[in-house]
Design a protein around this nucleic acid. Structure first.
Lengths: 117, 117
DNA sequence: GACTATTTATAAAC
DNA sequence: GTTTATAAATAGTC
């Protein structure tokens, strides 16, 4: 994001990857706290490093408490909801990829604009 | 963050709060995905809006799977003795670092030798 | 682990 | 939802 765009793929250089992990992890935790404070939300966030180390944030109470709330709010429709969300995510990713390749006339030609229901 | 700094407290205007919630929630989810991809991390993130609506992201597998991993990695680590020992070790390391910097007369002057209980 | 040049995120205003 | 001016995050560097 600075002094050069970043490619959205795994950083291969282990030193660069570790440095970026530290910086962005700190940034992510900060943003999560800010969202919770500014907008009165409750956030549970946990990050496993590639080597298995855990970093966590629970903006209210304990992570266990938030996890219980999460499980309660999802119980009853777990599997279908999970699958639907994963499929929606995949569609989103594919569509973003498509948009970068398609010119407006190609879109018109193949009517790709209606790819989404 | 733009056209004016933001005060780190709950946004009182409900419209502003809702708009900010949508924008920042999207930003937070994006940042989490980026961290996972760039640094080969696994992230579980769930957000309850002030009104109880759930937004979630699991960068690998399902949130249930990540929660299980989280619970495993934290179980057993709650032993107070374990944490006390780790903190004592850290203090020892820091003190050794200090001693390499302090000359005897500085130690005498500030009585740093008694910094630990 | 501090310093910029840049990119990104986003608050306010449409 | 789009735009735009500005604040924040951060990639590369030392």
């Amino acid at each position: 994001m600075a002094r050069g765009k970043v490619q959205m793929k795994r950083i291969e250089n282990p030193v660069h990857r570790q440095v970026t992990f530290c910086k962005r992890r700190a940034g992510l935790l900060k943003k999560a706290k800010e969202l919770a404070v500014l907008c009165d939300a409750e956030i549970g966030l946990f990050i496993f490093s590639a080597h298995g180390k855990l970093y966590e944030l629970a903006t209210k109470g304990t992570m266990q408490g938030l996890i219980e709330r999460y499980l309660k709010s999802t119980e009853g429709a777990e599997d279908p909801k999970e699958e639907i969300n994963m499929l929606k995510n995949e569609i989103e990713v594919l569509q973003k990829g498509l948009r970068t390749l398609l010119t407006p006339d190609l879109v018109a030609k193949y009517a790709m604009a209606t790819i989404v229901c």
